[in-house]
């Protein structure tokens, strides 16, 4: 299995802060400014959501962001153009649903199948993919395409993922695993469950960075989760909330971008602080 070097490097110097935004939310230009603000705020990797019309794994915050982006005219072609124009120097991971990956070849006049999408993603500089509706059982064609084009394929480990399912996933994962902190869909919550700690323990024997997501919204939470052994934290809804507020209040794009940058900085600092707080025995898991 190929490992993407850019992603491996992002985890090499300690825990990574990984923010998410839906691309094109609320429009193309503003979205570019927002993603660049996350990079300035200290993102180590950025997850870029490519909007799909039926986002079954998302809670209402990200679902609404996806609706705004689709209404703003975002398509897979525009998404790749967006990535090409983006002025950031951290690795980018595309988060989307399988049907868009599967159909991309057909949209360009070829046959359906994941290869055309992955090839184009590699061409524009995407380092990895997260596909929330693609369990390990159905992932072999995409895994193969990712190997062919040097992309990582990130899987989501749920609190309910155990035993054989976990093994099947770990045989196919590369880059990092996305540890889902609690059951349910994405969305900012104030509590970070002790399911997170149990999940990290369950994964301890696997030699792949573990990034925790779902419900993280503050630097303090980020620090606590990293101190408990996470190799990275993923934050989506708390950032999308800022974009949503910007869109509804119609304040200038620069103001929203500045707020995003500040929030990113808080989360990035929390991530580093958590690493410093780790006790030696926690570090062992």
């Amino acid at each position: 299995m190929a490992e993407n070097e850019a992603i491996a490097a992002a985890f090499a110097d300690g825990p990574a802060f990984i923010p998410y935004l839906a691309v094109g939310d609320p429009d193309y230009e503003a979205s570019k400014a927002y993603v660049e603000a996350l990079a300035r705020g200290g993102a180590d990797i950025i997850e870029l959501g490519l909007p799909f019309s039926e986002p079954i794994a998302e809670g209402s915050t990200i679902q609404n962001a996806i609706v705004r982006a689709l209404e703003g005219g975002m398509t897979p072609s525009r998404f790749f153009e967006f990535v090409t124009e983006l002025d950031v120097d951290v690795p980018l991971v595309c988060m989307t649903y399988y049907n868009l990956i599967y159909q991309y070849g057909r949209s360009r006049g070829g046959a359906p199948g994941p290869d055309a999408f992955v090839e184009r993603a590699a061409e524009v500089g995407i380092s990895g993919l997260v596909v929330p509706d693609l369990p390990a059982e159905e992932a072999d064609p995409l895994r193969e395409a990712c190997d062919d084009h040097g992309l990582d394929l990130v899987f989501i480990v749920a609190p309910t993922t155990e035993g054989e399912r976990l093994e099947r996933m770990m045989e196919r994962v590369s880059g990092y695993v996305y540890v889902q902190a609690r059951l349910g869909t994405t969305g900012a919550k104030t509590d970070v469950s002790d399911q997170t700690t149990r999940s990290l323990q369950r994964l301890s024997e696997w030699d792949v960075p573990k990034a925790v997501g779902f419900g993280i919204s503050s630097g303090d939470q980020a620090a606590r989760i990293v101190a408990n052994g996470a190799d990275g934290i993923i934050v989506g809804s708390a950032l999308v909330d800022i974009v949503a507020e910007g869109a509804s209040s119609e304040r200038p794009v620069e103001e929203t971008a500045a707020e995003l940058e500040a929030k990113a900085r808080e989360l990035a600092e929390g991530t580093r602080e958590g690493a410093a707080r780790r006790s030696p025995d926690v570090d062992a898991i």
């Binding site: 079954i56 059982e137 989501i156 749920a158 609190p159 993922t161 399912r165 889902q180």
Partner: peptide
């Protein structure tokens, strides 16, 4: 097939 979020896989099993 079974194209669903990971959290649902055990329930489907």
């Amino acid at each position: 097939g079974q194209y669903v979020p990971e959290a649902l896989m055990p329930a489907i099993g």
